[in-house]
Design a protein around this nucleic acid. Sequence first.
DNA 1: CAGTGGTCTAGACCACGAC
DNA 2: TCGTGGTCTAGACCACTGA
Lengths: 238, 238
Amino acid sequence: MTGPRAASASYLKVKQHLKDGLAEGRWRPGQLMPSEAELVAQFGVSRMTVNRALRELQAEGLVERVQGVGTFAAQLHHVSSTLTIRDLHEEIEERGHRHDAQVHLQAREPANAAVAHRLGVKPGAMVFHTLIVHRENGVALQCEDRYVNPAVAPDYLGVDFTRITPTRYLLQVAPIWDAEYVLSACPASPEEARLLDIAEGDACLVIERRTVFRGVPITWARLVHPGVRYQIAGRFSP
Amino acid sequence: MTGPRAASASYLKVKQHLKDGLAEGRWRPGQLMPSEAELVAQFGVSRMTVNRALRELQAEGLVERVQGVGTFAAQLHHVSSTLTIRDLHEEIEERGHRHDAQVHLQAREPANAAVAHRLGVKPGAMVFHTLIVHRENGVALQCEDRYVNPAVAPDYLGVDFTRITPTRYLLQVAPIWDAEYVLSACPASPEEARLLDIAEGDACLVIERRTVFRGVPITWARLVHPGVRYQIAGRFSP
DNA sequence: CAGTGGTCTAGACCACGAC
DNA sequence: TCGTGGTCTAGACCACTGA
């Protein structure tokens, strides 16, 4: 007997059974849950099938598994959410609106201490720096202040960023990377206020993001959004 | 031959090989990638092993798989990030600081139209409403304005929220749920400014979150944080 | 030592899409 | 029809943990 018969696959049935039990509190956080062997006997499926169910629950953060010990109901401490950071150009186009970018700066300059640390270069080393304002239907939506490691994207200064966003360009140079980010709310500085056409001190949503490709820092960006015009939405489970 | 020999498991080797190829641009977004059968031949492993590697890459958003067609390199459109939303009490205690909560409101009241819609009840139906300020070492960190569906947490009004946070209490009532959230930056309202001991109009980081348990709305909360005192940090890969 | 999870195999049947 | 991915099996060896 194999193949998905009626509604769902076997591993999904096992998974749902355990999920239901966790939701009902049948296993309190930290408590030992049934072993693979027990579930094999209970559901009459092979161990690989049970293993897949448990592995996916682990990936979702619902259970913790320790080799040689067992599977435990996860603590409730935190929940993981999936936050989708899109390329702004695509996001705007998808809304059926028009995106354009104003390039206020695109230059080579020596890194100050803070930038040097974030890009993993020596203070004073030359790095690339862009300052770009992205607009949706002519309304400023994001002020992108970005520093780039020249070793990773040597042609960065030659790119026409009115035609492609730095994010998208860098994704082409290094399609896979790790990132760290910090979200915060800040009052607009005088310069930011001027660039975004808002009042000085207005609340802004700020994302600072550093990306790393194979251990080498690629770029560090500070993305400032007018609070009244920009939100980040998402959903997650559990 | 089986078991993890030297450094890593077979499925990890297959996975890393494909990840490297994607990073180098060997397969451009949308392009067809090797089939399971090809990878089986190339690596000399079983199909289940290759399947696991591909399934995990799919879960990570690096490839897209279509039954009957093949596996494709994913588009670069977006990246998924893991944002960890912790229980504020635990977060503060973990920093070695002291958390306390000031309960400004804990009452039953009729839902207005907006709240009724978010909690899936009729306008005018009675719901629970709490307004709590959380402090770290005596400094206000979060103003939590929360509405709760009485059907899910009937004992909500009897809970002492100076001893347990609403988030943690609700996790006990419904350990597993789905959530939607919106992040934004807003100026502090007069009331928020008073509660958080900041100036009116100061930039605040706002999280609005709605959670659903088995299709039934549990709670909707608006969490307002002083921008100067609160940040959300995280990391993600790819 | 026994029990646990971690991984792997060499097959298998199925659903689906393209031809 | 053929090749694709989706799922499943009944074993297996291994590393690890705890008694």
